[in-house]
Simulated assay, not measured.
Amino acid sequence: MKRILSYSFTMIALVALTASCSNTSYKKTKSGLLYKIMPAAGKDSLVKPNQWLKLNFVQKLNDSLLQTSYGKTPVYVKIPATTPEDYSPMEIFSLMKNGDSAVAVMMIDSLVSKGLMQQMPPFMKKGDKINWGFKVVGVFENDSLYMADQKMEYEKDTPRREKAEAEEMAKMKQQMMERRNAEEMELEKSGEAAKGVQAMEDYLKAKNIAATKVGKGTYVVIKQQGTGTQAADGKFVTVQYSGRKLSNDSTFDSGTFTRKLGQGELISGMEEGISALKEGGKGTLYVPGFRAYGANPQPGSPFKPFEPLIFDVELKSVSDTMAASSDVRPQQPQR
C-alpha cells in the first residue's frame, strides 16, 4: 500500500509539472526538444555512457494521460556513448542522475515537419503536445545488474499484469459474444437461419440419417454417449475431431483441441454438438452454414459463405480446469 501511495503522489506531481510549466522555463536540446530537469538533493554523479537508467514515466497528449509506468514495471534505458539529436527524450537522459525528475515536450508540428510522424493519428491534431514526465529511480553500472533488477521488477509486477490481461481477455470475449449474438439475431430475422435448418433437414432425410437437433440448428448423431461428465458451458473439453464438407464429403481439417465451452472460442455448431455428449462419447455433428463460418469465412479458407460442415468427434475429457492436452483448436484452414 505504501508503494502504491508513493507512486500515486509522484505521478500526480509529474502530471502537475507537465501541465503547469510554461515554455519560458524550459531549455532546448540541439534538435529543439523542450525540457526541464528537477535535480534531486543527493550528490550522485550524472549518469555515464553504457550505464542503465531505471525510470518511471508519465506520457500525456496535452492534458490527457496516454500511458504510465507507475504501478507497473519501470522502463530501463541504456545511455549511449554519443547523445542522439533525434527530438526524443533520449537527448536528456545523459543529463540526469539518480533521483532526478524531468519533463520533456514534443510538439506534434515538429514531429511532422521533421518527418518523425509520417501519419498523424486520428486523436491528434496540429498544435498538440506530447508531454513526458520522468523520475529516475535507479542507475546500474552494467548489463548484468540491469537484467537482475528488471527480472525482479517483472516478477513483482506479475500479479497486476496477469489480472489486467485476464480482464482484457474477458472484455474481448464479451464483445465477441455480443457480436455473435447480434449476428445470430440478424440471421434469424433475415430467414437465413431457417433456410440453413431446412437444407440440413432435407440432406439428412435424403441420406436416411436419424439425427437429433440441438441448440439453434446443429444436428447430432450420437454413436457412443459416453459415461463420464456431461459437457456444458464452463467446462474444459478435450476433443479429437475430423472436419468434412457436406457438399463433397472431403476432409478439410483434423486434430485435437482443448477449450472452455461457452466462451465463443469455437464455431457455434461445434459447441452445440459437443454439449450433447458426455466424456468418452463419440458422434457426428451436422452443422448448417450459419452455425459454422457464416457469411464471411476467413479469407484464404476453403469455405464458401454459409457452407454446411460435418464433424466426427470424440470427447476425450471433460473437466473444470484446463486438461493436459494438445491445445489446438480447429482453425479455418488455409488453401
Rank of each mutant, 00 (worst) to 15 (best):
K2D: 15
K2Y: 11
Y7E: 11
I12H: 00
V15S: 10
A19T: 04
N23T: 15
S25Y: 06
S25F: 11
Y26W: 06
Y26E: 10
Y26K: 07
Y26I: 00
K28H: 09
K28T: 12
G32V: 09
G42P: 00
K43A: 14
D44P: 01
Q51W: 05
L55N: 08
L55A: 01
N56V: 01
F57G: 00
Q59D: 03
K60R: 14
N62D: 15
D63C: 05
V75N: 03
V75M: 07
K78F: 05
E85D: 11
D86L: 01
D86M: 04
S88G: 05
S88F: 03
I92D: 02
S94Q: 12
K97A: 13
N98W: 02
A102V: 10
V105M: 12
I108N: 10
L111E: 05
L116G: 07
Q119E: 15
K126Q: 12
G127R: 11
D128M: 12
N131A: 11
F140S: 07
S144Q: 13
L145M: 08
Y146L: 02
A148G: 09
K151R: 14
M152G: 04
T158H: 06
P159G: 07
P159T: 10
P159M: 10
A164M: 15
E165I: 08
M172A: 15
A182S: 14
M185A: 13
E186N: 02
G196E: 00
G196A: 05
M200T: 08
L204H: 08
A206N: 13
A210Q: 11
T212Y: 00
K216L: 14
G217D: 04
V220C: 07
I222Y: 07
Q225D: 08
T227S: 12
T227I: 09
T229L: 14
T229N: 09
T229I: 13
A231P: 04
K235V: 05
T238F: 00
Q240V: 11
G243K: 05
K245M: 10
S247I: 13
D249K: 15
T251A: 12
D253M: 09
D253Q: 03
R259C: 06
K260C: 10
Q263V: 11
L266I: 05
I267P: 00
I267H: 02
E271I: 02
G273C: 12
A276M: 10
G280M: 11
K282A: 14
L285H: 05
V287S: 03
G289P: 07
F290L: 03
A292T: 07
A295M: 06
P297I: 08
Q298H: 12
F303N: 07
F306I: 05
E307S: 07
I310F: 01
V318F: 03
A323N: 15
S325K: 04
R329K: 08
